[in-house]
């Protein structure tokens, strides 16, 4: 086999592998979407349908409008989920903002100022990533209780931040290492203060990394279940991750509505990712320095 043929073959093979991997990863989402158009009865049939067997919008009616889906077997326990979606959005946005507010300056300081404690600090951040959130949840609850933040939006946001902030610092720090020091020096000689340098040089150049971290933090807040469950204890609001549970009763469950709520929760996140795609992982420092 000639080299060129070999290359083509390798390319085809890797494409195939990637395709299969993507198919496997996306299959659950696909099946949720299919299921969201099925009645609960069909869902429990033994056969998997690649297309809705008896397509129905009843589940979406339940989720979006809170109306009953008139079949005798289906249960309707709760009203619409739009309020939950809004809450999720607030938590996610709050987490993203909190994460950026802390991690961008922190990462800059850790990347560009050499301090003895830096190594220890970064080690601690890595450690924080390892501790499972369920372990943190109990101690965080105690703290929130003391600070009267239980059952509040800021409370949930702070909890979600404990996960997103260390991650954000590590990602941004790695990125900022790559910024040539001469840029900062040049700005300083040009008369810029530390703050001006940070605002006019560092932030614009780190844009792609900042967007990446913001998206990550947003999704962490959006998808969080553990912290919402532990810190919201009979609050007047709940994110969608908790809202979904209203379709699961002790004796009966409206699985079709659960699926539809899942899809509703999925859409904003997917839209955000598609929009942010453009900014993620694009280098911006080309042409800054020689070579």
């Amino acid at each position: 086999m000639s080299g060129r043929h070999k290359k083509t073959a390798v390319r085809w093979l890797s494409t195939l592998v990637a395709f299969v991997a993507v198919a496997i990863m996306l299959f659950p989402i696909y099946s949720i979407i299919v299921a969201s158009f099925e009645s609960t009865v069909t869902l429990f049939s033994t056969k998997f349908h690649f297309f809705p067997y008896h397509p129905t919008l009843a589940n979406y009616q339940t989720v979006l409008l809170g109306t009953q889906s008139g079949t005798a077997t289906s249960v309707t326990i709760s009203g619409n989920q739009l309020g939950h979606v809004l809450t999720s959005f607030e938590i996610a946005l709050g987490t993203a903002l909190l994460t950026l507010a802390i991690s961008v300056p922190a990462a800059y300081a850790l990347a560009k100022y050499r301090l003895r404690v830096t190594v220890l600090f970064v080690g601690a951040l890595l450690l924080a990533q390892i501790v499972p959130s369920i372990v943190l949840a109990t101690s965080l609850f105690a703290i929130l209780l003391k600070t009267h933040l239980v059952n509040t939006l800021p409370g949930v946001i702070i909890c979600d931040g404990t996960y997103a902030v260390p991650f954000g610092i590590l990602v941004l720090r790695a990125f900022l290492f790559g910024l040539p020091n001469e840029l900062m020096h040049s700005a300083r000689v040009d008369g810029a203060s530390e703050w001006q340098t940070f605002r006019m040089i560092v932030i614009p150049l780190a844009r792609s990394a900042i967007v990446t971290v913001a998206v990550f933090a947003f999704l962490a807040g959006w998808g969080d279940f553990i912290f919402a469950l532990t810190t919201l204890n009979g609050a007047s609001f709940e994110p969608i991750t908790l809202g979904i549970y209203s379709f699961l009763g002790n004796y009966q469950a409206n699985w079709g509505a659960v699926m539809a709520a899942g899809v509703v929760a999925l859409v904003p996140a997917a839209v955000l990712l598609v929009i942010a795609q453009r900014y993620i992982a694009t280098g911006l420092t080309a042409g800054a320095v020689k070579g």
Binding site: E182, V289, K290
Partner: peptide, 29 residues
């Protein structure tokens, strides 16, 4: 500090601000 010394420096490897166009680079100070 460097910013208060009022010196202008041309760096050996240029150190241009990559996100700014030529005009804004020159006008940065």
């Amino acid at each position: 500090s460097a910013r208060d010394r009022d010196v202008a420096m041309v760096f050996q490897n240029y150190a241009l601000y990559p996100h700014l166009n030529v005009l804004d680079n020159i006008a940065f100070s």
